[in-house]
């Protein structure tokens, strides 16, 4: 957490009152986002998201065949591990990042247990009640410069969009219970329902009625009085929301924040989907893809 003096906070807040931010953005503008998929050859699906050249998230997906949970026999499992590495901030050294990691993981779990992703989870089922895919999604926070929730959810979604699973053949056994599966290592398929995956949008209130901003830098985050993070599904539904900060938000502001968050979410979803479509098409057609590389 960045430490700001009162004067610096005042500067940011007064700017916010007039709709001006220190990097020249409007209140609801987001910083340029760099998105690259399939960056890890050892993962079945991966993505790296950078926001404003500061926040940097790497996500990799490892699939595994497992037994579904008893509560949801016809659904696969998506499990999250978020690691705030000590690379990202001196605060994360040792156990310092554990709380934030847990918080980020909980938000992702909330988004991906919501009914909006039920079809996605169902598509991971292999034999009802017996076998399903479990997707281990590991996210690494390489650098943090604000808006971690947004960047993380975007990276997870992009990785899900490009993840490939080996084809599974079900070999019927003699009895119903004896069905066996064989994993075909030659043929792969993508997850069709991954487009249902939501993203998270965070809007931070700067104390005054009706004043809030999107995609905060860490300076702006540290002087925000309260913030709302909302999961937005491609259909514009809210699929999990949490608040942070101790300032409190009045009802009208909150209401318009939610509306703006949903709209912003849809815009981001739309833009990334357009990008991912060309990205996937290019990869399918074997067109040469110039990697962005780690240090661009």
């Amino acid at each position: 957490m960045q430490f700001l003096s009162d004067a610096e906070c005042e500067y940011i807040r007064n700017g916010a009152k007039d709709g001006i931010r220190s990097d020249g953005r409007a209140m609801l503008d987001i910083r340029p986002v760099t998105l690259e998929t399939t960056v890890l050859p050892t993962a079945s699906g991966s993505a790296r998201v950078r926001i404003g050249k500061v926040t940097d998230i790497l996500v990799g997906i490892k699939p595994e065949v497992a037994e579904p949970s008893q509560d949801f026999p016809d659904e696969g499992i998506i499990s999250f591990t978020v690691e705030c590495s000590s690379l990202a901030s001196p605060d994360f050294v040792g156990r310092g990042g554990a709380d934030l990691s847990a918080e980020l993981g909980q938000l992702l779990t909330r988004l991906y247990t919501s009914p909006v992703t039920r079809e996605l989870r169902r598509s991971l089922s292999i034999i009802k009640g017996k076998k399903c895919w479990i997707l281990h999604i590991d996210a690494l926070v390489l650098d943090s410069g604000g808006n971690l929730f947004g960047a993380l959810s975007l990276a997870v979604r992009a990785a899900l969009r490009v993840v490939i699973l080996p084809r599974v053949i079900v070999i019927p056994g003699e009895a119903d219970d004896d069905d066996e599966i064989e994993v075909d290592e030659e043929e792969f398929k993508m997850l069709e329902r991954s487009r249902d995956a939501p993203i998270a949008v965070t809007l931070a209130s700067q104390g005054d009625r009706g004043i809030y901003m999107a995609d905060c830098t860490s300076e702006e985050e540290s002087c925000a009085t309260a913030s709302i993070t909302m999961g937005v599904s491609p259909l514009g539904k809210s699929c999990g929301a949490v608040s942070a900060g101790t300032g409190g938000i009045d009802l009208d502001t909150l209401s318009s924040m939610l509306k703006d968050a949903a709209q912003l979410g849809l815009e981001i979803l739309d833009a990334t989907d357009r990008f991912l479509k060309t990205d996937i098409d290019n990869r399918m057609s074997g067109a040469p893809i110039v990697p962005i590389g780690f240090f661009s």
């Binding site: 709302i228 608040s243 009802l251």
Partner: peptide, 14 residues
């Protein structure tokens, strides 16, 4: 008259 904590689970229309 301020909302100090907000949590939403599952799926809800805006």
């Amino acid at each position: 008259a301020k909302v100090t904590d907000l949590m939403q689970n599952g799926e809800v229309d805006l």
